[in-house]
């Protein structure tokens, strides 16, 4: 039997939720372990096999000078590198620091700020190294994770759609909450969650970040028609994917 591809899972600034979705693949976990050699996954096992690795899954954003160095080493040891989750693909919720002065936060939070070595920004992995594939979501959908690994093993493109949440929303048979008066980010948000929030009568929170062709001004005009003000719009856009370019740019346009 041919040797199984070596899989590594790497963590940067993040909450661990995305890599946990790999452990959460209860039904598929044995199949994953059968298909790849889990060579480096500290969250699951302390046994570490040396690189290079065939497939690296990278969670988290870059927030420290040390991590900015470490990600270069990860890239150098990885043949195929996939970033997973909003932190790795967009900078995460911690990218809210990018809109303010990080020194103020440090002074407010830490008793001895001189020991804190951090960057002024939290940025996506793709801002530092070339990335082979980005899997969006906060957290990622574990079905997609299995799809990405299966696709990698077969040498095919993962079937993960980049269109709006609205398509999933309609496929699911939901009644559109936006047309009924609740502002929703679904039309500009990348599919992947299966339109969970609209199914429970809430507007979409944008967990999967910008869709492939987001028309931000057209959506926020309608939000205002529905009674949202600049603060509502800015807060909605500045969450897990705040630093994703279309969300960042549009949020800056609603400073009123």
């Amino acid at each position: 039997m041919a040797p199984r591809p070596k899989l590594a899972v790497w963590k940067f600034a993040s909450c661990d939720g995305c890599q946990l979705s790999l452990l959460d693949c209860e039904d598929e976990l044995l199949a994953v372990a059968g298909a790849v050699e889990i060579a480096n996954f500290p969250e699951a096992s302390s046994a570490v096999v040396e690189g290079p690795y065939d497939l690296s899954l990278v969670e988290g954003s870059i927030t420290t000078p040390h991590d900015a160095e470490r990600i270069l080493a990860v890239r150098a040891q990885s043949k195929f590198l996939v970033t997973i989750g909003a932190c790795a693909t967009a900078g995460g919720i911690q990218a809210l620091r990018n809109f303010a002065d990080v020194k103020d936060f440090i002074a407010a939070v830490y008793a001895s700020p001189q020991f804190i070595d951090t960057l002024a920004t939290s940025t996506a992995i793709s801002a530092h190294i070339p990335v082979d594939y980005e899997l969006h979501g906060c957290p990622i959908n574990k079905v997609h994770l299995v799809e990405v690994v299966s696709a990698y093993l077969m040498g095919r493109k993962p079937a993960v759609a980049a269109h709006s949440v609205c398509i999933e929303c309609k496929q699911r048979g939901n009644v559109c909450v936006m047309v009924q008066g609740t502002p929703c980010l679904g039309p500009v948000t990348h599919a992947g969650c299966g339109a969970i929030c609209p199914a429970y009568r809430r507007g979409c929170y944008g967990c999967y970040g910008p869709m492939e062709t987001p028309n931000m001004p057209a959506l926020t005009r309608e939000w205002r028609e529905l009674g949202a003000d600049g603060r509502d719009i800015q807060r909605a856009l500045r969450s897990f994917n705040a630093w994703a370019e279309p969300f960042r740019q549009e949020s800056a346009a609603h400073d009123d």
Binding site: A151, L153, A161, H163, I167, Q171
Partner: peptide, 20 residues
């Protein structure tokens, strides 16, 4: 295709001329 490479399926979904 699945992780074992032994099973595959083709799924049809509503699509739209508005996607890339």
């Amino acid at each position: 295709s699945d992780l074992t490479g032994q099973n595959a399926e083709r799924v049809r979904k509503w699509d739209s001329c508005f996607t890339m």
